[in-house]
């Protein structure tokens, strides 16, 4: 474990906590894409299949349980909670995430480290995570209303992935532990997807103006 990875995990944890708190306290999910949340629940469900078979560490298991619990409860809130669901703008959140899931599944079947169920599912979860933010970014472009909690959520998510890239570099240099190139590429693609958001987010923060994404 190194500082980059620990802070990456903490940033990731913060992003889901921020989101859950927002939904739970103000009982609203305005501006949040349910499609992205469903994709994240899928990411964790397919990545943590080994939670009971391969024990890595207490930390690892606890974090997996937290990510599974938070992602599924966010989806539950947005779908079934009688008050929260009313603030979900399904007219705007129309991204067909099936068009993201299918290519990821096909790619995972073709490009993977080892053709076993668990390995293919793990690779699939990497590809889905790389594109999971797209529905949320599309929704932000459409609704233009980035309330600062949603902005913080996306920012923290991007920061976590960027920290993970530093973690992979660190591990490569120190532990001679190379992360599989699949992990590298999908992590890089994911971080790049945030790049433009980061640009506008930091600019708006610097000029202390409301965050506006270009049309």
């Amino acid at each position: 474990m190194n500082i980059f990875r620990l802070s990456g995990d903490m940033t990731h944890l913060m992003s889901v906590i921020v989101l859950l708190l927002k939904i739970h306290t103000i009982k609203s999910c305005a501006g949040i894409s349910l499609k992205t949340q469903e994709l994240y629940a899928l990411v964790f469900a397919t990545r943590y299949l080994d939670i009971f078979t391969d024990f890595v560490s207490v930390y690892n298991t606890i974090m997996k349980l937290i990510f599974l619990a938070t992602s599924f409860s966010i989806v539950w809130y947005m779908r079934h909670h009688k008050i929260v669901r009313r603030s979900y703008d399904k007219e705007q959140d129309t991204f067909r995430h099936l068009f993201l899931i299918l290519p990821c599944l096909i790619l995972a079947l073709v490009v993977n480290e080892k053709f076993t169920f668990k390995e293919v599912m793990w690779t699939f979860s990497l590809y889905v995570e790389a594109v999971a933010i797209l529905p949320q970014l599309v929704l932000l472009q459409r609704t233009k209303n980035i309330d600062n909690l949603t902005g913080q959520y996306v920012f923290l998510l991007g920061a976590y992935r960027a920290l993970y890239i530093l973690n992979w570099i660190y591990r490569y240099l120190t532990e001679k532990h190379f992360v599989h190139w699949i992990t590298w590429i999908s992590g890089l693609v994911q971080t790049l997807l945030y790049a433009d958001f980061f640009y506008y987010y930091i600019n708006s923060w610097k000029n202390n103006v409301r965050l506006q994404l270009p049309a």
Binding site: R5, V56, K64, F67, E113, K114, E119, W122, N167, H177
Partner: peptide, 10 residues
């Protein structure tokens, strides 16, 4: 072929 490493990252 080396055993695929257990994915120790989240």
């Amino acid at each position: 072929v080396d055993q695929p490493q257990i994915h120790d990252e989240l």
